[in-house]
Structure formats: structure tokens, C-alpha cells
Write a protein that binds this DNA or RNA. Structure first.
Length: 200
DNA sequence: GGTAGGATGGGCT
DNA sequence: GCCCATCCTACCC
């Protein structure tokens, strides 16, 4: 199967940090478009005041409290949508924000959806950009990512990846916690205008 | 190379 | 009414 097997629900039924780290190197697939996950952030339950679930179970946060392996998609700044994957066992909050992808399939379509981006490095190097590039919207909120059409696959051949840990981006509360995870030396991560062929 | 500011609408107090 | 888990443009070195 292209890009390997679909990750089973048991992959997501772990601690949010384990899932956030484990997703690096896996392949997010939607229709003809796909990208390697190269950057994630963990949003925990309980004492993590940066997480949407910190305010409790509401109409918006319902999915975060539900079973693992589902998509939580929300609107940010009135314009962009962000994709999270729900972790932890059913009833416990916790989700992983997907922050950047390295495109591996459907690059022409991704470019058409992101006309301002000049290079593949910029097609999906941010949470709002990757949903645009892959055609993910709030219509996918609550979708089961072990069933499709939006799925995460194991990837091929890739061994364990070297992971860099930093504080999360763009938040004010709990801003110091080391909960952002990136593949080391990967040029497709967010937060840089870097345009060249490789990074360091 | 860099950054300041604006767009824009839903969720929550 | 205020706050955003963002991105792009204009403008300035």
C-alpha cells in the first residue's frame, strides 16, 4: 500500500506527548495530496492552560474529549483552519496540532491551492497553510483518521527520526513548556522563510 | 535580510 | 467586547 499501513487507533490511545513525537515521520494523506509530518505540538489535558480543552467540555472542544484517532479542526483568526489529532483514551482530553508537512504527493494540486508559495518548502510549513494545501476544513472536524478519506499512514523505510524540542509557537499562556517537536535539520518546518535546498 | 500591522469571524465572558 | 494554537503584504534596512 502506498505510504504503508494506516496507523491503528492504538497508536493514538497513548499520552499526548508520545503521540506528538510518534507522528513525526508519518504521512498525512488526503485524496491525491500527502505530506510527511515534520512538526507537531502537544496540547495536554488538565493543567495545560494553552489548550482549548482547559476551559472544559463545550460544543467546540467535544471532539478533544472523545475517542482517540479523530480529527479536531477549528477556525483561527476568522480565516484559517488548524488540524489536530486526538490522543489519550476516550473521555480524557489531549490532542496534537499538526504544524508542518513535507509534501510527497500531489504537489501540483498543493501549489494550486497555495498560489503565493514559491517552493515546496512553503506549501505546508504552518498549521493554516497545510490545511489549505491538503484541502482540510472544519467539515473534517470529528472525522475518524483510521478510516479515511483523511488518514495517517506509517510511511516507508523511515527509521526513527532525530527530534528537536522547543516551546510552542504563537501562544501566551503556558508558553514556556517544551511541547513543540520537529524533525532535526528538516527544511519544511514552520517559522522560517528559508528557501534553499537543504538546511544546515 | 527583517518586522509591524491588518484581515476576519467564531467562541466565550 | 475581547481574545485568539495565523498568514500575507508593505515597508525598511
Amino acid at each position: 500500500m502506498l505510504f504503508g499501513r494506516i496507523l491503528p487507533r492504538s497508536f493514538y490511545a497513548r499520552s499526548t506527548v508520545e503521540v506528538a513525537r510518534g507522528l513525526l515521520g508519518k504521512v498525512l494523506v488526503h485524496g491525491p495530496t500527502a505530506g510527511i509530518i515534520v512538526e507537531t505540538e502537544a496540547y495536554l489535558g488538565g493543567e495545560d492552560l494553552a489548550a482549548h480543552s482547559a476551559r472544559g467540555l463545550t460544543g467546540r472542544t467535544r471532539v478533544i474529549f472523545g475517542p482517540p484517532g479523530h480529527a479536531y479542526v477549528y477556525l483561527i483568526y476568522g480565516m484559517y483552519e488548524c488540524l489536530n489529532l486526538v490522543a489519550e483514551r476516550d473521555g480524557r482530553p489531549g490532542c496534537v496540532l499538526i504544524r508542518a508537512l513535507q509534501p510527497v504527493s500531489g504537489l501540483e494540486l498543493m501549489h494550486a491551492r497555495r498560489p503565493g508559495a514559491r517552493q515546496p518548502e512553503q506549501f505546508a510549513n504552518g498549521p493554516g497553510k497545510l490545511t489549505l494545501a491538503l484541502g482540510i476544513t472544519r467539515a473534517h472536524n470529528g472525522a475518524d483518521v483510521t478510516r479515511g478519506p483523511l488518514v495517517v499512514r506509517q510511511g516507508e523505510g523511515a527509521g526513527p527520526v532525530e527530534i528537536v524540542v522547543t516551546p510552542r509557537i504563537g501562544i501566551t499562556r503556558a508558553a514556556e513548556l517544551p511541547l513543540r517537536f520537529l524533525i532535526a535539520r528538516n527544511g519544511f518546518v514552520s517559522g522560517t522563510r528559508y528557501n534553499g535546498p537543504s538546511l544546515r
